[in-house]
Structures are given as C-alpha cells and as structure tokens.
Nucleic acid binder design. Structure first.
Lengths: 209, 209, 209, 209
DNA sequence: CATGAATGAGACTTCATTCAT
DNA sequence: CATGAATGAAGTCTCATTCAT
C-alpha cells in the first residue's frame, strides 16, 4: 500500500546515538513548535531537555542537522501512524473517516503548528523539501487507495477521478490548518470536522453500504 | 461590499520616513520571499535596496519592525487588490472566477511563498496574527457576498450554506498553495486551476445565466 | 580679590550663539546631573530642550564641546555667586558662615551632583581639569581672604596658618558632598550644617566680636 | 570590631567563571582607572587582559555587569584590607595613624582615581549605591571603634562626640582626594599627610600615652 | 560518553556627524 | 538660523562551534 515502509533518512551527519537521542528529538520538536523553526537554538533545546549544548552537538553535529532530523522524525512518525490507521477498518467510507480524523487531529497538542513549521523549513531547505515529496506521496496513498477501492465496490460514485478527489481532500485538510494555527475564530474545531466530512461525503458520492 | 475603510496599522514604532520608505518596504518583501522571514537581515535588505543599514534602522526602528511592516503592507495591498477585483464583473460566476484567478495568481512572481512566510510569521508574532484575522475577514468578504448574490438570483444552487461554501473555497485555495511552494510535482499549475474551478462550480451548483 | 573676574573660556569651537543657546546650556547641565556626564547624548538634550539635534551641533560643534561648555558655564556661575556672597557682610565670622551656607547649598536642587559630574569629567578631560584649577583658586580666595582678615583683627585665633585652615574647610565641604550625593543616610542635611559650623568655629578659634 | 561577616554580593547575572575570572576583574579595575568608568569597553579589558571579548561576555553577561562587579570587588577588597589594618597596633593613636595612612594611600598606584570612579558609578547605579552604603559603614567602623577606645582610656579628649569626630575625619579624607585626582598643585602629597595628621590630632585631643 | 570553557563570526543597535534645504 | 534625512563607525550581544578533559 505504501512505497516506503521505513525510509532510511539520508542525514548529513548522524554521529552518535543513544537512548537519550530519541528523547531529545521529541523535545526538540516541541521547542520548534513553541519558538519557531528558525528561532530554535541549541540552548533552547538544551534547557528544555536538560542535555548540555555540547552534547547536543555531539549527537547531531550541527544545529541545522538537529532541527532537520527533528522535523524528519516527527513527520515520519506522523505519516507512519496514518498508514497504520488505514488498516483499521474494512468499509472504505469508515476508513476515509478514520483517515480524516487522523489528518485533522495530528498528534497530541498544538502539532498542527508543527506542520506549518515543517512547510516553512521545507521552503528553505532542499533536503527537507525532498523529504516532503516522499511524505506527501505516502500521505496521499492511503486516501487514494481507499477511494479507488470504494469506487470499485460501488460504495463511492464521485464525479471526478480518484486522483482529483484525493487532491481536493488533502488540500482542504491542509487549508483548514491555517485558521487553526492562526487562531481564526470564525470557525471552530467542531465545525471544521463537520464541514470536511460532509464535503468529502458529497465529493465521493457515498452510497449506503 | 467590503467592510474595511482602509485600516490604520498600529505599528510599534514608526520613526520617520520619506519617499524611499515605501520602496524599501517592497524590496524587503521581495527579500523575505527569497531568503525566508527569519533569515532576512538588515544587510540583505540594505544590499537589495541600496539603502544603508543605519538608514533602515532610522526608518523602521528595528529589524523586527521592518519585517513586520513589510508583511503587513504587502498583504494589505494584496487584499485591497482582491477587493477591487470583485467589482470588475456583473455576473456572480464570472466574478467568482476572477476572484479565484486572483487568489491563485497572488502577486507578480513567486509570491505564494510570501503567504507561507506570512503564516509562519503570524504564528510567532501576536501583532501580525491580529492583522491576519482582519485580513482573513476582508479576504473572505468578496467571496461570501458574491455567493449570496448568486444564490439570491438563482445563478448558484449550492447544497450548503454560503458561509460553508466560502470556507471550503478558501481552504482549497490555501491548501493548494502548499504543493506549489514545496514544488510537489504531482500537480502542476494548470491542473490546479482546472481542478479548483470545476470543484467550485460543482460546489456552488452553477446554472447557466 | 579674585584673579579672573570674567574669564574668557577657550572653547574648542564656539560656533554660533543666540538667545536659546544659554537656555540650552542650563538644560544640558540638568540632563548631565540626571543621566551622568558620559551618558548624556545629543538626543537627551534635544528632547529636554526641544531643540533639534542638528541645531545643538550647530550651536556647540560637537557633543564634547557642548558638555564641556555646560559644565564650564555652570561651575563658573557658581563660583561667581560665591564671590559675590563674600561681600554681603562686614564681620569675618558672619562672612565665613555665609560662604559655608553657599558652599553647602550649591545651586537650586540636586546640584551637588553636578559637582561630582564635574570632578569626573575633569579627571578625563585636560581642558576641564585646567578650568578646575582656576575655579579652585577662585573658590578658595574668599575663604582665605576672610580668614586672613579675621586673624588680623583678632576675631580669629586659629592654631595653624590661614592657608591650612582654608584647605581643611574646603576639604570638609568637598568630603561631605559624597554622603549626600550617594544618599548615605547616616548623616542628614541639618547635621552636616551643624557639624561643619562647629568644626570651623573651633578651627578658627572664633572670639566674640 | 567590624560588623561585616563577608558580604555576599548579589550580582545580577553571574554566569560562569574559573580561575581567570578573578584576574580579569583586577585588570578591569585597572582599565577603569585609566580610561574612566563609562569609557571602559569590552575591547579595552579584552586587550589589557588578553581574554577574548566573547569570553568576557561569557564571564560577566554584559558590560555593565562586568564593570559593576569590578568596582564591587575592588572596593570590597580595599575595605577588607582596612579592617585588617585596624588590628596592627595596640595604641589607639598609632592605630588611627595607620588607618589614616591606609586611607590616604589607597591601593598601589593612582587608585584614588578608582574611588572617584566608584562615586560616579554609584551616583548612576542603584546596586552600586547600595553597596556604597555598606562599604561606608564598614569603612567607618574601625575609626569609630578606635576613637571610642581612645576616649575610654583617656588617650583621646575630643571636644565633640566620637561619631562626629569620625565623620569629620572621613570627610577630610574624601575631600582631600579631589585635589589629588584633579592634580591641584596648591597642595602636595606630603602636605596632605602632615595636614591631616595634625588636624586629627587636634580634633581628638591626643594626650601622651 | 558527556561536558564546561573558551572563542570567532556576524548580527543588531546606538550615536555622533555630514549634508541639503 | 534651524532642521530632517541619511549614513559610517563602533559598540554590545547572540550563538554556533572548537577543544581539552
């Protein structure tokens, strides 16, 4: 279903690793969300994780590498979770709903913000951008597969092609991230969910199973 | 049709300024797009504009204020252009198409990127975030008005409410920005336009005039 | 009695002058007291006086010249006032008391501080230091003259020479400035006056007239 | 005899430090004396000490903190030396003479100037001013104790109270600093010593032991 | 394996000064 | 006579990075 079940990230310099390393990466991701990608310094991650600055450098080599690996790991985990969510249900429509739920929820708390940070970072770092291409493909796959399956079984009767449907759905998911990150109160969390589900339902022409 | 009688931006410290000031702001916006918001330094803008670093400080007070004012002004102009585009046509559907064209084009060159920079900056600066709330309201208005008008005249027969239609349209516009900024080649410029127009057409239930 | 009734200050560059010039100098002296000699900038004096920075430069040439002239003028006026106070009374002891009162009061308010600023500035500027030599001589003269007169008439019967008496008196005046400027509360204003008068009385061996 | 159990200086930000730190502080004090408090920059201390500017920042946090700590430490050491000098002799009058010698000498070379710099800095920094209050109390104590002792043993028969005597002595010490710092040649080093000793002798009414 | 000490590069910022009006 | 615009010089400060332990 996916084309890269466990990609080997081509990190610039992966020096050493330990048990704390993974933990530090999570902390780093948190700090990125709070302070912003570019404003995240060694000392911030050091303070938040309790690991000395020089140790961080020892782990990751440079600041950029640390940040990039943090984003890489985080987004990778995210997509992997989505990929697994795609197998939780038999019915295509239920599966779509689960994928949507997952795409909207996106991690514990305030982690839509992570996605914006990721986009921003990708826009200025070619390595991350390449990663985003892969991620996008993997992110897209479960939706596309499921839609195709639904169309094949007659559960879905969309007007357009499955590819277009997928694109539209993902664009709405991305687009609805913005008002949430920027706290635009014209629309709240519940309305977002309601809106997107009804919209996707119409789009796919869902029939009773 | 619009609700914004030319907003007065409450800048933190607007020191002084002359004719060059406005020109510098445009250059600054360009540099922000090229280098990224956080990576834009005084010296970059100085070099790009031919104005001494100390003069920039004289104009804007601080680096942050310069960047913020640049984003503020640029986005403001953008929305203002959109507001005027809304008057160019009588027929609601033609007007929607013009608004979409404008929303997709977004400035001369590579200035979708500007929007991502703006989002990123808003996520870390309360003043800009406040501005984004206002901008979003103004950006939304022409779409909403036009849709209501079209519904009233029978030109549009959407399934949902005009508010929801507007939200969906804008979310797609925002969401389709991402693959373009990140150069995700799975979809190209023309397909984006085709896709969004057909999608909006379906959404609104456009009838022949 | 004095050796320079109206000294011509050899200012580095006295460019132009007007009515506001003198007023600005007073304001500058005030600012010096408040902010400290070295911390006083053109913009401070500009703000306090309402005169544009470039105008200040037009008046005084440079920042240093402005500050030096301010200190020069202020201290000069001060000594001149002391010189005149020396003639207000016939009786040597009364005259000494008046001189002491004047030496302790030193200008309207918070202007002991001015004297400390002056010392500090003199310690780092040869021109001002030269000026301080002259000032010290003029400041000393009325005391010395009066003491000599009192000794001659039998009003004073000091143990030591008039020169030494004068030196001691002036050193106490200077020394008691410190706790007042630094707000050392172990001694208050009234005690200072009482102490110095009784001390000087003993020192001079004052007899009933 | 003294009331100061080794004060703990509440420095604003004492980042880190090693063995060189203390050495740098002494150098900084020297530079302050030579260049003046306000004119002492990082680069001056860096050049004089051979320590990189960024290291100074690493040690002290900021320029102000470096200067303040330098003055703090220096004056503290000075007073501590005085406190110990008070134990060198049994006879009160000899002890007073030693205290006077110490008060007049004040450190190796040209360090009366230090005291003027200190006053100036105190006048513009509340933290230093507070410190000066403590210092003054400690500086005063040995004199006051010794005088009281001398009075009790009949060695001294002053006209006034011991407190007043102490105040007068200290004010003369402070006041005679000025002509030395400003190089007022009307009185030289030897005369200062002769004058102050004879003056204090008269003041205390010293009797043969 | 992990860290503190030390440092250089490079940013922001202040401020006196020059110049045209 | 007085001023605003513009700028260069020089300072402080941040921060990633190197090195010895």
């Amino acid at each position: 279903m996916t084309d890269s079940p466990s990609p080997t990230p081509p990190f610039r310099t992966r020096r050493s690793g330990g048990a704390r390393r993974a933990a530090v990466l999570e902390v780093a991701a948190q700090v990125i969300v709070e302070r912003g990608y570019e404003r995240t310094r060694f000392s911030d991650v050091s303070q938040a994780s309790g690991v000395a600055v020089s140790t961080l450098q020892f782990y990751f080599g440079s600041r950029d590498d640390m940040l990039i690996e943090a984003l890489y790991t985080t987004t990778d985990n995210e997509v992997r979770a989505l990929e697994q969510a795609a197998f939780d249900s038999e019915d295509p429509w239920r599966r779509i709903l689960e994928l949507l739920d997952h795409g909207l929820a996106t991690l514990p708390v305030g982690a839509w913000r992570m996605l914006l940070e990721f986009w921003y970072a990708c826009a200025h770092d070619e390595e991350l951008r390449q990663h985003s291409v892969t991620l996008q493909r993997r992110y897209r796959a479960p939706f596309l597969e499921t839609i195709k399956e639904g169309v094949g079984s007659g559960r879905f009767t969309p007007k357009g092609e499955p590819e277009d449907c997928t694109t539209v759905i993902l664009s709405m998911l991305d687009g609805l991230l913005v008002p949430r990150v920027l706290e635009h109160t014209y629309i709240n969390e519940d309305e977002v969910k309601r809106l997107i589900k009804s919209q996707v339902s119409d789009l796919l022409g869902v029939r009773e199973s």
